[in-house]
Design a protein around this nucleic acid. Structure first.
Lengths: 236, 236
DNA sequence: GCGCAGAAAATCGTATACAATTTAACCGCC
DNA sequence: GGCGGTTAAATTGTATACGATTTTCTGCGC
């Protein structure tokens, strides 16, 4: 994400160390080192980063605004556990905004941007062939970064931030409801989208994007699993 | 905003009194009782609401995530003062998402919703004819509520929250760069949009929505006023 | 052994305390 | 009178303290 089209805004400086903690936890969630539902107690977070509960709390609070953790009054913070309905809303939102972002990005894209995108793509492909958790995590990140880079190129910082939220929450949803072992099956689709942009076939690019999102979504099993914590669990 | 289509989610309970403070300040900003750039010191906010700086700080922090307040490290919080570029991005984002929201809303809208919308519209019209600041503020609110109600009807809580942010920030932009005295000149346009939805003319409704947003934007003077705090200010 | 009341532990909600930084005030100096 | 520098006041950043709520544990009765 060291793209050329960065630096739109004056980089809201990290007003406090709480931001570092927030970013660290977010990364852990997005890379699925932290599972949905995991409790994030303020003391534990504070100890882990050697800060007081004040900062830990601020970081958790921030993450709750992004929908990545849910804080329950007097009970604490937990890694978000999006319901199937929430999951549908997240992808519905993506279908709604990503074509528009794509159009704006295409209008401003430079050759440099395209080569950056292709570079990212290549990296993604390389990681897919690798084994090991580290590679898998990096692959998840790279897959999301493709969508984020498009938002960045679009030049709209507000939409960019919104996409960051959506991509992060998507990662949670996939962790919860994804079925296929291959995490980012739609790798080639990213390449197709770039090609369509390059060829100035905007409508086709949008179609591909919608298809790509639908593809990701089709790998989810969004049936209500109401914990089935009764007899059914043992009736087999 | 007591619409029928509410209650999508389990209502994230107000985990603390900080939420009340946040909401109160946000309302003050949106209704333009607080001007862009106004300093919001933690002590002052705390005293005003009879709480400690801890809660005041949390509220300001929350507002900064919504883009209504900008906090500068070691300097404090201020009512946001969106740059012309930021203003363009806000409206660009609205053009991008509002047609999509409209389409989703139209697909789920009920006769009840329509009558609620018309009711809101009537209220808006009534306020337009009234005199006085109180009426003006209520009118500003009602004008935004139209867009928010559509988002609510769409049934997507995520898009709804995003629209809340965009509408609130739009209010700031209009306060800063609006020219016409009449705040929400596009009152009739709201009615046209409802009619188009009612007649099931979706494409036309979207066109009207885009036109409406463009109309609001056309009332802005987004030229860089770089404070012109040099000689120019006195050259006349 | 099971269930339930009550106490103890852990955790969160809020306030206060202290350190660090910025802003202002003051004062001698040119 | 204006200007720069030093010092005092105000404000933010972070930590700690204390009360409130929830959770867990314990032990008694059945």
């Amino acid at each position: 994400m060291k793209s050329a089209a960065k630096a739109m805004q004056a980089e809201e400086v990290a007003e406090t160390g709480a931001h570092q903690i927030r970013d660290a936890i977010r990364e852990a969630i997005v890379e699925r080192r932290l599972s949905p539902g995991t409790k994030l107690s303020e003391s534990d977070v504070g100890n882990l980063f050697n800060v007081s509960r004040t900062l830990a709390r601020a970081a958790l609070q921030a993450l709750s605004y992004e929908g990545l953790v849910s804080v329950e009054k007097n009970r604490g913070a937990f890694v978000a556990y999006p319901s199937p309905d929430e999951a549908r809303q997240i992808f519905s939102a993506r279908r709604l905004v990503e074509p528009g972002i794509l159009r704006e990005a295409a209008a401003r894209i430079t050759p440099d941007d395209i080569s950056n995108l292709r570079e990212l793509l290549q990296e993604e492909g390389r990681l897919m062939s690798e084994r090991g958790q580290t590679a898998r995590r990096a692959e998840i990140k790279a897959s999301g970064d493709f969508h984020l880079m498009l938002a960045e190129i679009s030049g709209n910082a507000i939409m960019q931030r919104f996409m960051e939220e959506l991509v992060a929450r998507s990662s949670l949803v996939i962790a919860l409801y994804g079925q296929s072992t291959a995490s980012s099956c739609g790798h080639s689709e990213h390449g197709d989208i770039i090609s369509a942009i390059e060829d100035n076939e905007l409508d086709r690019a949008c179609q591909l994007m919608l298809h790509h999102i639908a593809h990701i979504e089709s790998d989810l099993d969004l049936r209500e699993r109401k914990s089935l914590g009764l007899k059914e669990a043992f009736e087999l």
